[in-house]
Design a protein around this nucleic acid. Structure first.
Length: 449
DNA sequence: CGCTTTTGACCGGCGC
DNA sequence: GCGCCGGTCAAAAGCG
C-alpha cells in the first residue's frame, strides 16, 4: 500500500508540466545531459512514468524541434578533448571554419536524431495502444481473482443504485450449463454476449455525473441505443447504449438525468473496450476502465477508502472529503462528479479535473477490512491502471506529442479532441448519426409494469 | 438500402 | 408463487 500510495502520489502532474519543467531543467541545470535531452520517458509496459528525470539511456525521447538553444547547449557539451584541440589550434580562421563545420555537422546529427526520435515516437504511440490492449487482456485473465473478491464480499441488495443482473452474469459465467437450453440461450448468440470473459468486466461500474443539456456526454466513443426504460423513482427515462466502435465491444452505458437536478446527466459506464480508442475517447475510457478494473481486482487497500480516488483521480490531493463508501449498491460503482467544474480547460489545468468522487457499493468497509482475507494487490496493474487512468496525463501526453510533432499545428486539434472527450459539458453528441434527444424524447416506455 | 432509434415484450433476480 | 423491477431483445419505424 505504501508502495502504491507513493507511486500514485508521485505522479499526479500532467505531462505538460513534466515537459515544461524538464525542458527548463535541461537548459539550465543539466549541462551534462547531452543526447536524450528533453526526453519524456514513459514505460508503457510497466506503466511507470519517469518523465521527470533525465533518462540514463537515450531511449524513447520525444523529438524536439531543432532550436537555437539546442545548438548552443550541444556546442557547450562538446567533448573536452575537442575543445582542447581547438584551443591549441593556431590558425584561428581554420578554427572558426572548423567550428562552423562542427556546427553544421551537429545540426545534421540533430536532424538525424530528430528523424530517429520521430520514429521512436511512433513506436511509443503504438506501444501505448498496445498497453491498453495488454491491460485489458491482463484484467480479463484475472476474472477468477475478481470473482473471489466479489464473492467473498457479497453485495447487499440495492437501494441507492438501480438493481441489476449481476448475479445473473456471475452464474452465466461460472456455471457452464447456465446458458444451455434456456430460452435466453438464443440471445447469447449476439457477438458481444458471446464474449463470456468480457462479462467479468461488466460487474463494476463507473458513473459520471455531468452538467449537460445534451442528451449524452461526448466521450469520444460511438454508441448505439438499444433500449429505454422508465426507472423507478426518476421521472426521466433511462437510456441504454452499447459501444459500436467494435463488433464485439462489451462496453455499455446508461444515461439518465438526475431526478433532483435535471441539468445533471448521469452516465454509467460498464465494461472495458476491447478495441483501440481515438484520442478523444481515451481519457474517459481509460478512466472508467481503470476505475472499474481496480475495483474488480481489489487493488485498493481496504483501510484506505481514498486509495482509488487518488489512483483514478490522482490530481486530487485532498482525499478525505471526496471518497465515501456506500455498501448499498449492487455493483461496485465509482461515481465521478463533474458537475462542479464543468468547463475545466484541460491542458492549462493542473488542478483536479474531477473535484469530487463518490464510491458506492465497494462493500469493503466491513468484510474486506481484514487484509488477511483479501487477494494480493496487483501492483503492476494498479500502477498501470492508475497512470492510464489519469486523464490529465493521457490528454496531456497526446497533446504534448502532437504539439511536438506538428509544431503546434496539431495542438489545437488535439486540445479540442481532448476537451471534447473529457469535458463533460461539451454539447457534441457522439452517438452515431443520432440527432434525437433520447433523454428528452417523451417516449416514455410503458413496459410491462 | 443500411443503419439507428423506438418501444412493447420478454427474461431473470429479488422481496414478500 | 406472485409481482415488481432492471435489463435486454427484436420488430417496426425513421432517417440520410
Amino acid at each position: 500500500m505504501d508502495k502504491q500510495g507513493h507511486l500514485l502520489d508521485a505522479s499526479p502532474r500532467p505531462l505538460a508540466c513534466f515537459l515544461n519543467d524538464h525542458s527548463r531543467r535541461m537548459s539550465a541545470d543539466d549541462p551534462g545531459g547531452g543526447r536524450g535531452r528533453r526526453s519524456v520517458e514513459v514505460d508503457f509496459f510497466s506503466g511507470h512514468k519517469t518523465s521527470s528525470r533525465v533518462a540514463g539511456s537515450p531511449e524513447p525521447p520525444l523529438p524536439p524541434p531543432i532550436k537555437e538553444e539546442d545548438l548552443t547547449i550541444n556546442m557547450q557539451l562538446l567533448p573536452a578533448a575537442t575543445q582542447k584541440e581547438e584551443d591549441d589550434d593556431d590558425d584561428r580562421s581554420a578554427s572558426a571554419s572548423g567550428s562552423q563545420q562542427q556546427l553544421q555537422a551537429e545540426l545534421g546529427r540533430m536532424n538525424e536524431e530528430n528523424q530517429r526520435l520521430r520514429g521512436m515516437l511512433a513506436q511509443v504511440t503504438a506501444s501505448y495502444q498496445a498497453l491498453q490492449m495488454h491491460l485489458m487482456a491482463l484484467m480479463q485473465q484475472q476474472p477468477r481473482k475478481q470473482e473471489q473478491f466479489l464473492n467473498a464480499t457479497p453485495i447487499p441488495a440495492a437501494a441507492e443504485q438501480p438493481a441489476s443482473n449481476s448475479s445473473t452474469e456471475v452464474e452465466k459465467e461460472d456455471s457452464p450449463d447456465a446458458g444451455g437450453g434456456g430460452p435466453s440461450s438464443s440471445k447469447q448468440a449476439l457477438p458481444w454476449a458471446a464474449e463470456g470473459r468480457q462479462l467479468s468486466m461488466r460487474k463494476a461500474r463507473v458513473s459520471v455525473r455531468a452538467r449537460s443539456e445534451a442528451p449524452i456526454i461526448a466521450d469520444g466513443c460511438q454508441w448505439r441505443k438499444y433500449g429505454q426504460k422508465m426507472a423507478k423513482g426518476n421521472p426521466c427515462p433511462r437510456a441504454y447504449y452499447r459501444c459500436t466502435m467494435a463488433n464485439a465491444c462489451p462496453v455499455r452505458k446508461q444515461v439518465q438525468r438526475c431526478a433532483e437536478d435535471r441539468s445533471i446527466l448521469i452516465t454509467t459506464y460498464e465494461g472495458t473496450h476491447n478495441h483501440p480508442l481515438p484520442p478523444a475517447a481515451m481519457a474517459m475510457a481509460s478512466t472508467t476502465s481503470a476505475a472499474a478494473s481496480m475495483l474488480l481486482s481489489g487493488s485498493m487497500p481496504s483501510a484506505d477508502n481514498s486509495f482509488l480516488a487518488r489512483a483514478v483521480l490522482p490530481s486530487c490531493s485532498s482525499s478525505s472529503s471526496m471518497a465515501t463508501i456506500s455498501a448499498s449498491a449492487p455493483f461496485p460503482t465509482v461515481t465521478l462528479d463533474l458537475t462542479h467544474r464543468p468547463h475545466m480547460p484541460l491542458l492549462q489545468a493542473p488542478p483536479p479535473l474531477y473535484n469530487q468522487s463518490k464510491f458506492s457499493g465497494l462493500h469493503m468497509s466491513s468484510t474486506a477490512s481484514s487484509d488477511a482475507t483479501r487477494p494480493p494487490i496487483d501492483t503492476v496493474s494498479a500502477a498501470a491502471a492508475a497512470i492510464t487512468a489519469d486523464p490529465n496525463f493521457t490528454v496531456a501526453l497526446a497533446a504534448a506529442i502532437t504539439s511536438i510533432i506538428g509544431g503546434g499545428a496539431g495542438q489545437q486539434q488535439h486540445h479540442g479532441q481532448a476537451a471534447a472527450g473529457v469535458n463533460a459539458s461539451n454539447n457534441n453528441n457522439n452517438v452515431t448519426s443520432s440527432s434525437n434527444n433520447t433523454a428528452t424524447s417523451n417516449s416514455t416506455n410503458s413496459d410491462t409494469q
